[in-house]
Design a protein around this nucleic acid. Structure first.
Length: 594
DNA sequence: GAGTTTGAAACT
DNA sequence: CAGTTTCAAACTC
């Protein structure tokens, strides 16, 4: 890259033509050359135009080392990251913010006295000002340099991070990139695990993200701004090699920080909401807390020793607590799932009341049920129509003529369509001759079809395809009466499907409420003194979880908690039992899965 | 504001 | 790659 020769670092061979007149003379602070704009692009200020050729040359070099950035998939980003990532690639060296700035760095009281990089609403304002003394602002120690911006109004000494020293700066950039091609890239990125990963807070909105390299904190517990993760308002991740980390989801210390501040309460609430979302489906409400290097490899996240995914999630400290017993710390405590393996009762974890309750299979079953219900609705509707229209059947048969070109290759389906034209219904004999064909009623509504899109069962995929073909064939017939019939069928099917789905959700809500009530009452009665002011009402998930955890320690909680998995099965079963016609195989399949 | 602590970056 | 040094921000008083 660059000149191709070895680069002295720090640069001593600064081109005389470009270097500052004297190294020891504090460089004159120049106006900032690049401004971040809300639109995500850097703008060249008038005074920087003179240096453009140099910058462009450098930008080419930089682009070479950062090409991969273009191919990276979209990632959750902070505002600053979004701004950076949306910038033209070749401009990155001057724009990628400093690690701290890249992650929405907040500032200490002292720092707040200086211009902020971002305004309160996230609108980029003025950059922080460094105080470098020995780095010439040409190393990543310097926030400005690391941010890819010239120093401007900083308190630095012997600054070379300015236009006058562009050559030196450029070499420094090259040297930095040589050491670390990612040096100017955002440090916070999304994880390959997607939703299971860390959340990054931007203002009060949490998004996912984690530190690409991870922190290496030893003494700060990752709860001070020394920690890059904490500074970025993200949780530590498996990338971190920190010790005694307290910056993990559910950390009491971390939450204590949040609770001390009204604004941060919103963060906590939002986190809880996120946790509820992620925890409601699947076995873990929260992602696992980070494991320090020293513990990594010792702990089994999903080890065979895990007797129950819902057990052993208490006392989430993992690496953070030198607990003698390996805490299987997969996720925070599920309120409704407690076990005897409580470790670290002081740890407070929020977990969805529905965590471990709704499993992916339940959703699949729900979809199946809805499909079946839809099919039944279609059948019922067509039966009714059949009765009503029976006396006009002959007339319709003669008045509605299909063009043969519009017939589908599948003769059976074409026949069905033609028959539908005649009778506005599906012949029950045809459609249900095979149980697997039950939902194949051609009157499947768009909503039902949508539900089926995610169904991996080829049986249903085939069905959907057939239905689509039929619908297409029939639509092209321009037979309004039939269309009307289809519309009616769709409407009816959607009504039923939505009703069932609503019922399902209501029951899920009920389960959650039951859990909540039980957790709350359990906590009140068995753990804390009645006068504990925190434990009022049923909405304090944190308090309840704490109680629950304590109750779990007493080994009594389990007896008070209904078997939620059973409840979910009951939901699906009841849906099947109440609404699914006698379509042997499918029904059996659903029930078997349950 | 000076001094201390901390951890990333730089260096060996 | 691990250990050490340098550095500047964060923090404390």
């Amino acid at each position: 890259m660059g000149e191709g020769e070895g680069i002295d670092y720090p640069p001593k061979n600064v081109s005389s033509s470009d270097a500052a007149p004297a190294l020891d003379i504090p460089a004159k602070k120049l106006a900032r050359q690049l401004n971040f704009t809300g639109s995500g692009g850097a703008v060249l200020l008038p005074e920087q135009e003179k240096s453009q050729p140099q910058q462009l040359l450098l930008q080419v070099d930089m682009a070479q080392s950062q090409l991969s950035l273009q191919s990276r998939p979209p990632q959750p980003q902070t505002l600053a990251q979004s701004v950076i990532s949306s910038l033209p690639l070749q401009q990155l060296p001057l724009q990628a913010p400093h690690p701290s700035l890249r992650v929405g760095k907040s500032e200490s009281p002292k720092a707040r006295s200086r211009p902020n990089f971002e305004s309160k609403d996230g609108t980029p304002k003025k950059q922080k000002q460094c105080n470098c003394k020995h780095s010439k602002c040409l190393k990543l120690y310097c926030e400005c340099f690391a941010s890819g911006v010239y120093c401007d109004g900083c308190n630095c000494v012997n600054c070379y991070n300015n236009v006058e020293n562009e050559a030196a700066r450029r070499e420094a950039v090259e040297a930095t990139l040589e050491r670390n091609p990612n040096a100017f890239r955002p440090k916070i990125g999304s994880s390959p695990h997607g939703a299971c990963d860390r959340r990054e807070e931007v203002g009060e909105v949490l998004i996912l993200g984690k530190h690409n390299k991870g922190c290496h904190c030893k003494k700060s517990g990752c709860l001070k701004k020394y920690c890059e993760c904490f500074q970025a308002n993200i949780l530590c991740s498996e990338n971190c090699k920190c010790m005694d980390c307290k910056n993990f989801e559910g950390s009491e210390e971390r939450q204590a920080l949040f609770h001390g501040d009204q604004n941060n309460n919103m963060v906590y609430i939002q986190q809880a909401a996120n946790a509820a979302i992620t925890g409601a489906v699947g076995s873990s409400g929260f992602s696992s807390p980070p494991i320090s290097k020293k513990r990594k490899g010792q702990e089994l996240y999903f080890g065979a020793t895990t007797k129950d995914s819902s057990v052993g999630r208490l006392g989430q400290q993992a690496n953070h607590v030198r607990s003698p017993a390996p805490s299987l710390s997969l996720s925070p405590i599920p309120c409704a799932h407690v076990g005897p393996s409580t470790v670290g009762p002081s740890k407070v974890m929020y977990r969805s009341l529905l965590a471990d309750i709704i499993q992916p299979q339940h959703l699949k079953e729900l979809c199946l049920v809805l499909v079946l219900v839809s099919g039944q609705a279609a059948k019922t509707l067509t039966d009714q129509k059949n009765l009503m229209d029976k006396h006009t059947e002959d007339r319709r048969a003669t008045s509605h003529v299909f063009s043969t070109q519009e017939q589908l290759p599948s003769q059976k389906e074409s026949d069905d369509c033609s028959k539908a034209n005649q009778t506005d219904k599906i012949s029950p004999d045809n459609s249900s001759s095979d149980g697997a064909d039950a939902p194949k009623g051609r009157s499947m509504s768009p909503g039902t079809l949508a539900l089926m899109c995610d169904e991996q069962d080829t049986m249903f995929m085939t069905t959907a395809s057939s239905i689509g073909s039929i619908a297409h064939a029939c639509n092209t017939s321009s037979q309004l009466p039939y269309r009307q019939g289809m519309t009616d069928a769709y409407a009816e099917q959607e009504r039923i499907v939505l009703t069932k789905f609503r019922d399902f959700l209501n029951r899920v809500i009920t389960i959650g409420e039951i859990n909540e009530t039980k957790c709350s009452s359990l906590a009140r009665s068995e753990l804390h003194s009645p006068k504990d002011p925190i434990i009022n009402g049923t909405g304090n998930a944190r308090a309840e979880t704490t109680q629950q955890q304590g109750a779990a320690s007493n080994g009594v909680a389990k007896a008070h908690v209904p078997p939620m998995a059973t409840s979910m099965s009951t939901i699906s079963t009841s849906l099947v039992a109440n609404n699914v016609p006698e379509n042997g195989e499918i029904k059996l399949k659903v029930e078997k899965d349950i």
